[in-house]
Design a protein around this nucleic acid. Structure first.
Lengths: 247, 247
DNA sequence: CGCGTGATTGAAATTTATCAAATCGCGTGG
DNA sequence: CCACGCGATTTGATAAATTTCAATCACGCG
């Protein structure tokens, strides 16, 4: 099995997702329990992390990288039904199979626990269960947001929404004094299409259209420069206002 | 405010959703706590149960009827992002606003609690939290299933999927010796379209097409007779196998 | 330097939406 | 009891958006 790596690694206190992952509400004593249970594992880009239908033995959190949750039909049609970003939780306690594949999009590092141990912890540690519920509710909101996109939006709006989603995240971590942002798209055109419910050609065409309209600039096919985030937001079809950034 | 009705009503032991709702894992002592907190409320068909953006004061379970969760864009485009059926949970602990409307599709009865009281209970009663997590994970699965439909399926497959979804549920409760099922569609063509990411005309056309192909028969516009569930399932684009019914 | 993968672009075909009109179901009032 | 009207549904014709099929282009790598 390619790319398997295990290590015990540094302690939770210095973990980059410490404050957002499933462990974020844990007290020191619970944390040390987790610390004993945990194991790190990495996957290469393209590697399948979980196969649909197979037995799940581990649960865990994405520490670094991006993974996609893929639901597919027998004839090959595929829909990305979720993206897993750092701090997102992988797997489903209380059920030992899932019906979707999870695929590493980039190089991915996971902090994992055996399913059995984690489920036992879940019974004794309300902080973990409570945080897991929050994370799941957030995912549900995200899924519904995506349903709105899939069901209502035009191709151009879909692509603009996708880019703005990434741009916003990048803008948070970047210098807010400069207006433009450069972002790295984690997905190929094909995956983008699968995410947006479009063909790769349509995704590509809309990228070009946005480029020609001056909304974005392309630096190679995976790097996008957004000169004016507001202008991009106007193309998404969403409410202009809010989103978190006051004028 | 139209249609508001409150009553204390019979005890939980005889509740029709006792074994599936958020209270299903409660011990007698927890149940009696819930019993004291609960209140019943009904809504007429068409009534808005929760407005997007407004303060949430109550959480609860659907006891009877069907409600839809609607996400909409400013220009009027609308996507149904979930259906709430008996035993489904309404509302989101830990957040005091939601970004979608919840609308009663039929006459709806809700067993509700004040948000504050329920959240307090959540901290002390792991059985409730644990069940709520399960329910939320189920909703997440359903949402993802729907994303597959919205992103990948053709109009015909969408409509067939919708009907089969209801037909399966009806088949469970019906005589399994007879092959055909008659079902009542809870939604108008317009709502069906909003659910499936189609216009009402397209939804209607596909209903007619399925009728002309002998897959379904219409008894008025809201009653559908399915002579052969297998044949309908073949039109959904999903795996034929399984689904729960062994040969 | 050429090959291969991924991206872009073009043209035609197909699906779905849009606009518009006819029909159906059904309750109301004459 | 029947005509009327209203909303929902069905159907038709046309337009628009997206997919499909087919080249062509760009870039990184051996």
């Amino acid at each position: 099995m390619a790319g398997l790596k295990l290590k015990k690694q540094e302690d939770c206190a210095s973990c980059p997702i410490r404050h957002r992952a499933v462990c974020s509400k844990c007290e020191p004593d619970e944390l040390s329990l987790l610390e004993q249970m945990k194991t790190y594992r990495t996957y290469e880009a393209g590697e399948v992390m979980v196969w649909a239908g197979e037995q799940i033995t581990h649960l865990g959190s994405v520490v670094d990288g991006v993974a996609s949750i893929n639901r597919s039909m027998e004839d090959g049609r595929l829909q990305v039904v979720g993206l897993l970003l750092p701090s997102d939780f992988i797997g489903r306690p209380g059920r030992d199979r899932v019906i979707y594949d999870i695929v590493a999009v980039t190089h991915v590092t996971v902090c994992q626990f055996t399913k059995v141990e984690f489920e036992r912890l879940l019974e004794t540690s309300p902080a973990v269960g409570s945080r897991l519920l929050e994370l799941t509710l957030d995912e549900l909101d995200a899924a519904r947001e995506w349903m709105l996109l899939l069901g209502c939006k035009t191709a151009r709006e879909k692509v603009a929404t996708f880019i703005s989603m990434i741009a916003r995240r990048a803008a948070l971590e970047a210098d807010t004094s400069v207006d433009g942002v450069t972002i790295a798209l984690p997905l190929s055109r094909g995956s983008m299409g699968n995410f947006l419910g479009l063909t790769l050609e349509t995704a590509s065409r809309q990228m070009s259209a946005l480029k020609n309209d001056g909304i974005i600039e392309l630096r190679g096919s995976q790097q996008v420069y957004v000169p004016d985030l507001e202008a991009l937001l106007d193309e998404t079809g969403d409410d202009d206002d809010d989103g978190g950034l006051p004028a």
